[in-house]
Lab assay of single mutants.
Amino acid sequence: MASDGVVVEIGKVTGSVGTTVEIPVYFRGVPSKGIANCDFVFRYDPNVLEIIGIDPGDIIVDPNPTKSFDTAIYPDRKIIVFLFAEDSGTGAYAITKDGVFAKIRATVKSSAPGYITFDEVGGFADNDLVEQKVSFIDGGVNVGNATPTKGATPTNTATPTK
């Protein structure tokens, strides 16, 4: 695992066909100046998982989280898009600690492993708008004895992609 920078880890949970599971997305290594904004994309298989919603985690402190935390689910493109932009203008609602960034709610549709993997990152910046190093650890849903650990090695991303 990367020793510096922010680590975004997609949790690994267990479920069975027809059940709804909650998959946490963790941030670790949050910089001392916090995270003022970030955007990134995960990939998944809508034939295996139906993403039914995404909720902000406990490290989102904006009293009205829909102003700073936004997501979009595109089953036709097989992606989930995340956007966080601190909304106070003063840094008061920045992410300042490690913990759960988001909770992905999904219904298991198939007995195949439900991988959720890193696809791309736009950027991560602290309260001074300084770009942060970030790496990703894939996860998803274990169905029966299947284990979604494909790509469990962190993917280092030093520069934003478009």
Rank of each mutant, 00 (worst) to 15 (best):
P56H: 08
A106I: 08
I79E: 01
A72D: 00
D128I: 03
T107S: 10
F124S: 00
K33Q: 03
K103L: 11
D39I: 00
A152N: 10
N127K: 02
E86A: 01
T157D: 11
P75W: 07
G144C: 15
N127T: 02
T90R: 15
T90F: 15
P56W: 03
N145C: 12
S110K: 15
T149C: 11
T107R: 13
I137P: 07
P65N: 12
I60V: 09
F84C: 02
G89Q: 01
F118P: 04
V81A: 02
A125Y: 00
D58L: 12
P24M: 04
N156S: 13
G18P: 12
I52D: 05
E9Q: 10
T19I: 06
N37Y: 01
I79Q: 01
D138Y: 08
D119T: 09
V134P: 12
D128C: 04
V61F: 10
N156C: 14
D76N: 02
L129R: 01
D62W: 14
S110F: 07
F82I: 02
T155Q: 14
V7L: 10
E86M: 01
G29V: 14
Y74G: 00
A152Y: 09
S16L: 11
D126W: 00
K67D: 06
I35L: 07
G89A: 05
Y115D: 07
V100A: 11
T149Q: 09
Y115F: 03
S16N: 14
A158W: 13
G151N: 14
V143S: 11
K78H: 06
I137S: 13
N64A: 08
T71R: 05
N145D: 09
T157R: 11
I10R: 00
V30A: 10
K33H: 15
G89N: 01
V8D: 15
K150D: 07
I104M: 15
A94W: 00
L129I: 14
G123V: 02
V108A: 11
V17E: 14
P154C: 12
P24L: 03
P160I: 14
I80T: 05
G114H: 09
G57F: 15
T19Q: 04
I73H: 09
S110Y: 04
L83H: 01
V61M: 03
C38M: 01
A72R: 01
K33M: 04
A146W: 04
D39T: 00
V6A: 04
A2P: 08
